[in-house]
Write a protein that binds this DNA or RNA. Structure first.
Lengths: 222, 222
DNA sequence: CAATACCTTACGGAATTCCGTAAACAAGAA
DNA sequence: TTCTTGTTTACGGAATTCCGTAAGGTATTG
């Protein structure tokens, strides 16, 4: 079983409620942190003193504060952690349900588990810990389903993502073309930009470009 | 002090963590519910048996489930509760930070307090309960600030909201005009619709209608 | 009643977006 | 090389959006 775990979570009720079920798994060395920066510091310190954490459970969103921070989200924390301790197992525990975001966590950051906050969170956290312990990836059933559905649709690459972001930022088609030229990206002509937007509209079944942007936001693509 | 309170919250860790501070306020009769429907039933039952709740603490978002439900969100729960027991004090406890949504809760549904989940949630819940007990409205400091900033901008009425919703749903300008005609709403001509959209773009400093929709979503207006 | 202000609508031209077609180009296969 | 295949770009006309101006309507005020 995991020996030393860190819970990064700004909602104080969460680690409070989590302690009992974790103790039941005979995990006793539980540290908590309400700030991303602080969590990273604790991980660094543990590493230096040769008593590293072997599991990190982290939320994604942390409320802002008077304190100045370097890291502002769980995503940044995960990225930073992977750089200093790549073998640390990470389970994300969040209300995030937008498939695009979760997909990114699993594929780009290689987190070991994703548990959605809600009804069965105790049970799912336990399952997740046991699964990750076996070296497997944990993902709650409904997320798995969503991810499978997403597969078909989401061939949207990083260029499409950028395009959608620029649309949402208020750039006109020709301005997007200029932007693509400046960044030396492929398919940079006005005509190609138009075609791409059109393809995305078909892909996401959007009638107008306004709806396309709305869908992209709701799906967590941008 | 409040005698009998109900916590509606699908994250099981929350009421677990909340019980201790509530007991410190000598609130002992605490019921919990993981479903909106169930919460409403409990409130109805308590009312019938002449032992009504005098405080409801509720989240806004509830995860979906296999169970079929009538009520699916805290907002609907609040609306339903206000109909059967208008004097029940309500404190909303949520991660929602989009001012538009919070504004609506306070102004349209007259909830008695809003506490944002996060760092100081224990303290803020306590403060909220004490404030509401005095018959006042509680709202955390940062939300108050946000609301004040919002005041200047948000003269957007329900028609503007509908218009933005229709834009996000993929209707073209002339289709929106038709829709407004069908619903017998004022300023229903294509020209008026265009003018309204233009005014909204100026109001929200959007360069394109795509950006306008994005801003509306991010602000929680739609 | 007239005068004014305000809201709504109509209209028209410019700008932009939409959408199909075709040319130009690049990469791989025969 | 030549042929195919697929991608990128150019182009042009239709549709839509954008934006200013003016006309019509309604309510308010003096």
């Amino acid at each position: 079983m995991f020996q030393k775990i860190l819970i990064a979570e700004d909602q104080i009720t969460i680690p409070d409620g989590l302690k009992k079920p974790l103790n039941d798994l005979s995990i006793d060395n539980i540290k908590t942190s309400q700030y991303c920066d602080d969590a990273l510091l604790k991980i660094k310190a543990a590493l230096r003193s040769r008593k590293p954490f072997d599991l990190l459970i982290t939320d994604l969103s942390f409320k802002e504060d008077h304190r100045s921070r370097d890291l502002t989200s769980g995503e940044e924390l995960i990225k930073a952690v992977k750089e200093i301790q790549p073998d640390l197992k990470i389970i994300v525990f969040s209300v995030e349900h937008r498939v695009g975001k979760i997909k990114k966590l699993l594929e780009a950051y290689h987190v070991n588990g994703y548990v959605e906050k809600g009804r069965n969170e105790y049970k799912m956290i336990i399952e997740a810990i046991e699964t990750v312990l076996k070296g497997e990836i944990y993902c709650s059933q409904n997320i798995k389903l969503l991810l499978r559905n997403e597969e078909e649709i989401s061939q949207t690459d990083q260029y499409d993502e950028l395009l959608l972001q620029l649309l949402a930022k208020g750039l006109k088609r020709d301005q997007i073309a200029v932007h693509f030229k400046e960044k030396d990206l492929p398919a940079r002509s006005l005509s190609s930009i138009e075609k791409r937007i059109n393809k995305l509209k078909i892909l996401f079944d959007a009638q107008t470009s306004e709806q396309l942007v709305a869908i992209a936001i709701y799906r967590g693509l941008i």
